[in-house]
Nucleic acid binder design. Structure first.
Lengths: 334, 334
DNA sequence: CTGAAAGCGCTTACAG
DNA sequence: CTGAAAGCGCTTACAG
């Protein structure tokens, strides 16, 4: 029933307003070269006719587009969902049209989504790369389009990257722990080989070295869930009961570790101190006692926009932007 | 540096392949009226030139579009994120291009996003309405475009709606509880006036009536979080310690209620039974002992696609599609 | 400040 | 099965 009637064009608007198509176009594109009288007439006609601007036609003719693709690796990850929301808000405020797509942590889906969005003339691509994204592929894309990567760095890529200062995050939180004299300390994460996780471990190791302490073996849990972390920690504790401090990749993991520790029934003087490198908001989390590092998705989104705008203006943005992080000390590390 | 070189058109492809533009176009649109030889030549030329199909031009000329807008009210809600992901997958499989946008539970943002997507010629709109979406506005939109609403019903709207059978969900879970002889039972949710929550309460009340039991006053917690639910329940318990069963709007709420109950140190024979009407996956949730009702986002997405396709083909779909739900009995209700 | 004209990259009948 | 031609709705110089 619809789709057909859709033939109100600037021509009709011009007719009703009693001006030429050019004038209507100028009004539509916010040009100042139009008299106020004409502008009002045009606006009135647009309203009366229910005219809808056809961006496809405009983009095609002008060879410009304000579509920005936001390619998220996993929308069901709370941090990524938060980031997507922030990015959309910020992009829309700048007059872009944000288009969020999810690659579901799958290279093929990522490639396919981006190829499709090229066909829709996306002006830029903001990408949270999936784990096995190929650097060469990204570089090719980046040589032809404006692309910025997010949260996850690709080794030796030319594409500009915006991410939190993971190394600092794990470093400050580890130093905080070590300065209290803990000695048997370990790191726990869900995918130790992931680039961002390697960076966290690097910051952790550096802190240990500064305190002349050799850390225990890192603990890996199968997935990024509290349950998985709980089990992994329980396992690790069995073989290394001397452990007295643990640095977790994020709050979800820490939540699981704390639950595991609670079942141990340790005396106050044997308490195992727990900290997290990345705070994540989660409506299911109950306790607010975890020492953690806050990472501002808002700040990251803002930086990302800046880098993108530089790319679109053909100036060379920093190839890497590290966003600052903040230690929040609570009871869990006392 | 980019955006300018982008002038490889079907004309260039036709030239290199030694055929006419029409033939290239036919290949591009998957027509069968092209000989295999020509097709191969065209495909080869496309590959060599790095030609990118221009969907804007195609859409404009053909007056067809396969863009589907998925307007989510809150991407940071795990259920909605899950749903968005499922929808995208299913839509893309059917040859559509899903565009996810978030309205952040804000009517203005919702309206603005949809108006913009009209300008981009979206062929259809899948909308999770924000709480104060106006029925009249939706009906107008729906009379001009293909729109289906999701998860949240709008009173007396003409737009087709796909949602889980909330009433059945709360009914079966309440019946399960009541059949065990509980007498002092209450419902708890974060926004009792929300339409979907009213439906949950309706199923709950019906079950109570069938067992000739008057339920206690419903409990409302400020926000949909475990912490908020924990506090609200603690408060309610103080004034009504006789309570021995509680039906929660969802798992997050139930999680908070359980935490609150745990602090009470009740004897085994005084235990308060807890159930939830809507299971939500959350990586921070540790215990798997909650009796809850599973709602399949995959099934909802599938139904949604079907309804949308009917609309696009101008057949009249069911105005309301209720997706079935499944009771999962665990220890929390025993 | 306004109008007439050309053209963006495609698709679609319509002849051959 | 292929080619020539018209046109989708806009923008953009270019004259007036």
């Amino acid at each position: 029933m619809h789709n057909k009637a859709k033939s109100v064009t600037i021509f009709d608007v011009a007719d009703l307003a009693g001006v030429s198509k050019s004038t209507v176009s100028l009004v539509l594109t916010q040009s100042k070269k139009v008299s106020d009288k004409s502008k009002q007439k045009v606006l009135k006609a647009i309203d009366e006719l229910g005219y809808v601007y056809n961006r496809d036609a405009a983009a095609m003719r002008s060879k410009r587009s304000n579509l920005i693709a936001v390619v998220i690796n996993d929308l069901t990850d709370p941090v990524m969902a938060q980031l997507a929301t922030e990015l959309e808000l910020i992009l829309n405020n700048e007059g872009f049209q944000a288009v969020i797509v999810s690659s579901n942590n799958n290279v093929e889906q990522q490639t396919q989504a981006i190829n499709k969005l090229k066909e829709y003339n996306a002006a830029g691509f903001i990408i949270c790369p999936v784990t096995n994204t190929c650097t060469q592929w990204l570089d090719t894309l980046s040589s032809q389009h404006s692309v910025v990567t997010l949260m996850q760095e690709l080794a030796f890529s030319n594409a500009p990257c915006v991410l939190p200062d993971y190394k600092k995050a794990s470093h400050i939180v580890s130093m905080h722990l070590l300065s209290q004299g803990v000695t048997n300390i370990a790191f726990i994460g869900s995918n130790l080989q992931l680039r961002s996780c390697l960076t966290l471990q690097h910051g952790f190791n550096t802190a240990c070295a500064q305190h002349s302490i050799s850390p225990l073996n890192a603990i890996e849990c199968g997935e990024n869930s509290a349950l998985s972390a709980k089990n992994a920690f329980a396992q690790a504790y069995k073989s290394t009961p001397a452990i007295n401090a643990i640095v977790c990749a994020n709050d979800i993991i820490a939540h699981g570790v704390l639950a595991s520790i609670n079942t141990l029934g340790l005396a106050a003087d044997q308490r195992i101190k727990v900290v997290s490198c990345q705070q994540v908001k989660n409506s299911a989390l109950l306790d607010d006692t975890l020492t953690s590092v806050a990472i501002s998705t808002h700040e990251i989104a803002k930086r990302c926009l800046l880098v993108l705008q530089e790319l679109l203006q053909n100036t060379a943005p920093p190839v890497k932007t590290l966003v600052n992080v903040n230690l929040q000390i609570k009871e869990s590390s006392q």
